[in-house]
Design a protein around this nucleic acid. Structure first.
Length: 410
RNA sequence: GCGAACGUAGCUCAGUUGGUUAGAGCGCGGGCUUGUGGUGCCCGAUGUCGAGGGUUCGAAUCCCUUCGUUCGCCCCA
């Protein structure tokens, strides 16, 4: 029986691991520069935690969560997103006394969707969250952090930033009602899919890709007509500052995000190189969420980025092959060879030994792995208490004492 | 969850209207070279043709089921 990974899951090895670590290192770097604290939370939580915040009628809650009953009858869910657990953790551990609190996290998320390129059932996400400030500077800092991170990681790629504002709580409510009424009047012209959303989630009709829906959407009420003065001002200030800081963006009035907790600023970084799964980073403001989770009534803003999608856009990274290959020509010189390796390793020189005792094979192996040097030990070397150091690029070699080799390689 | 395409060697793929022992390149193993890699030449092994069932004298090829991948929808990171 051949055992394969579960549908929608995959193993990381080789280049993927190198790329994953590269992303992780870069994130860690930015977390220091922007002063975010890392938080690591369990991968499963009580099901309750996700239901309300994400929206009882959201697709994530309705059909994508991995939920199971524990042996004591509790319902548990593998986390489908990280914002909610991070806030839960901040509340549980009383981390919200000094505000704002800036947290970041990296780890696996789980959604039972149909797998596709760039969409997996277990996937890794990076999250940055700022809790406890209404200031648009936080929104802007996060957008610029994401922008700088992407530019640094993928300098050659064309990535577009789209922003929108969902206004405050009243905006969304009133807009939804108006939108619902408008779509009811035009019900017959909409696709079946969209018709089913009129009552439950009319906002979602706005980002339909269907041409007839798009035509109806053209004359639909505009969310901007429902902004409060405050929301309007916030949004225009954000645009102004981003422009002043020469961050390229476009406004997409139909950008509505799938989780219920968003309000005010929402944004997405998209690429055209990944096909249908084109969002690299998405986020926004979620001012009521912390209170909803039983914490203080504080605002929040954050984003999530998909690591698999970033990895797909990265060029291969040449591993720094600094290994020195130890080649022992005959098994009888094993002990001498191991002693040499030990001395070098204690000086922090990386030594690879393939346990083969075959000069030809080992040299070939060293070559394949891109090694720069080989240390060769045979009868002549052992007799004179020396080692041969061979430069594989220049194809020159010389017998030397261990002390001299350490000097050469340090 | 809906629609469609695809699945042959470790990898990339060929395989005619169903026909005998299923092929190529790359990679892998061995040799030319018993203390010297990369280039070259020679030799060799690649395999549950995704899995299961059916039609047929005969199936990689046709049909059904199933698993997986990919594309679109949906959704999102």
């Amino acid at each position: 029986m051949k055992i394969t990974p579960v549908r929608g899951t995959h193993d990381f090895f080789g280049q993927q691991v190198i790329k994953y670590r590269t992303i992780q290192d870069l994130i860690s770097h930015y977390s220091v520069i922007y002063n975010f604290e890392e938080i690591i939370t369990p991968i499963f939580e009580s099901t309750e935690l996700f239901k309300k915040p994400l929206g009882e009628n959201s697709d994530v809650v309705l059909k994508e969560m991995y939920t199971f009953k524990d042996k004591n009858e509790d319902f548990l869910t593998l986390r489908p997103e990280y914002t909610t657990p991070m806030i839960r953790s901040a509340i549980s551990n009383n981390l919200l006394e000094k505000l704002p609190k800036k947290l970041y996290g990296i780890g696996p998320m789980f959604r039972r969707e149909r797998p596709q390129k760039g969409r997996y059932r277990q996937f890794n996400q990076i999250n940055f969250e700022i809790l406890g400030t209404h200031d648009i500077s936080a929104d802007i800092d996060l957008i610029i952090l994401a922008n700088n991170f992407l530019k640094n990681l993928l300098p050659e790629k064309k990535i577009n930033l789209f922003i929108n504002s969902l206004g405050d709580k009243n905006t969304i409510t009133n807009f939804s009602i108006a939108l619902g009424n408008y779509f009811k009047q035009n019900k017959k012209k909409l696709t079946e899919e969209s018709q089913s959303k009129i009552v439950l989630n009319p906002i979602r009709i706005l980002d339909s890709k269907d041409p007839t829906d798009i035509e109806i959407n053209l004359n639909a009420p505009q969310i901007s007509d429902f902004y409060s003065n405050e929301a309007k001002e916030k949004f225009s200030n954000i645009q102004k500052i981003l422009k002043d800081m020469s961050v390229d963006f476009s406004i997409n009035m139909n950008l509505v995000r799938g989780l219920d907790y968003y309000c005010h600023t929402v944004f997405e970084f998209k690429t055209s190189d990944l096909g249908s799964q084109d969002t690299l980073i998405g986020g926004g403001r979620y001012d009521g969420l912390t209170k909803l989770l039983g914490g203080p009534d504080i605002p929040g803003v954050g984003w999530a980025g998909g690591i698999e999608r970033l990895i797909m856009l990265m060029d291969d990274i040449k591993p720094l092959q600094k290994n020195i290959h130890l080649i022992i020509i005959n098994e009888s010189f094993k002990e001498y060879g191991l002693k040499v390796a030990n001395q070098l390793r204690q000086k922090n020189i990386s030594i690879h030994f393939d346990y083969k005792y075959n000069l030809k094979k080992s040299l070939s192996h060293a070559n394949q792995l891109g090694a720069r040097f080989a240390i060769i030990i045979g009868e002549e070397e052992v007799e004179k208490n020396l080692c041969t150091l061979k430069d594989l690029n220049k194809n020159i070699q010389e017998k030397k004492t261990i002390e001299n080799i350490i000097k050469d390689l340090s």
